[in-house]
Simulated assay, not measured.
Amino acid sequence: MTSSYAAALLIFLGLFLIGGVISLARQGLPKVLIGLLGVCAALAITAGVLRWK
C-alpha cells in the first residue's frame, strides 16, 4: 500500500478528527470549536497526502 506509515497515520488522524467534527456539530457545541477541529483535520489530511510520495 504505502511505505510511509507516517502518511497513513496522519490521514487516519484527519479522518478521526472529521468524525469528531460531525459529532460535535450534532451535539450543538460552539461553532468556533467545530471550526478549529475542522481546520486541524484538514491540515492532518493535507500533511498525510503530501508525505504519501
Score class of each variant (00 low, 15 high):
residue 29 L to I: 00
residue 30 P to C: 09
residue 47 A to F: 11
residue 49 V to S: 06
residue 50 L to C: 03
residue 24 L to S: 12
residue 2 T to H: 09
residue 46 T to M: 09
residue 5 Y to D: 13
residue 42 A to E: 07
residue 52 W to R: 05
residue 31 K to F: 13
residue 18 I to R: 09
residue 32 V to S: 06
residue 3 S to T: 12
residue 9 L to M: 05
residue 42 A to C: 11
residue 22 I to M: 02
residue 1 M to P: 04
residue 11 I to W: 04
residue 12 F to V: 13
residue 38 G to S: 06
residue 36 L to M: 12
residue 50 L to T: 11
residue 41 A to F: 01
residue 23 S to L: 13
residue 46 T to D: 05
residue 14 G to S: 07
residue 21 V to A: 10
residue 33 L to C: 04
residue 28 G to Y: 03
residue 36 L to P: 01
residue 13 L to T: 03
residue 9 L to N: 05
residue 2 T to P: 04
residue 18 I to P: 01
residue 12 F to D: 10
residue 26 R to F: 14
residue 6 A to D: 05
residue 1 M to S: 10
residue 13 L to F: 04
residue 53 K to E: 08
residue 47 A to K: 06
residue 37 L to W: 03
residue 8 A to C: 08
residue 7 A to D: 09
residue 24 L to D: 15
residue 25 A to P: 14
residue 19 G to F: 04
residue 28 G to M: 01
residue 38 G to R: 01
residue 42 A to D: 10
residue 52 W to Q: 06
residue 14 G to T: 05
residue 25 A to R: 14
residue 26 R to P: 03
residue 6 A to I: 08
residue 23 S to K: 11
residue 15 L to N: 12
residue 33 L to G: 08
residue 1 M to H: 11
residue 1 M to G: 14
residue 44 A to T: 02
residue 3 S to R: 10
residue 10 L to G: 05
residue 20 G to L: 12
residue 47 A to H: 03
residue 40 C to M: 15
residue 31 K to I: 15
residue 14 G to A: 06
residue 21 V to W: 09
residue 32 V to G: 00
residue 53 K to C: 05
residue 20 G to K: 08
residue 48 G to V: 03
residue 49 V to I: 15
residue 53 K to V: 07
residue 15 L to H: 10
residue 22 I to G: 00
residue 34 I to T: 12
residue 38 G to W: 03
residue 14 G to M: 07
residue 33 L to F: 09
residue 4 S to Q: 08
residue 35 G to C: 05
residue 6 A to E: 07
residue 37 L to K: 04
residue 3 S to E: 09
residue 36 L to C: 06
residue 53 K to L: 11
residue 35 G to L: 04
residue 31 K to L: 15
residue 41 A to L: 02
residue 31 K to N: 15
residue 36 L to V: 08
residue 49 V to H: 07
residue 25 A to I: 05
residue 35 G to M: 10
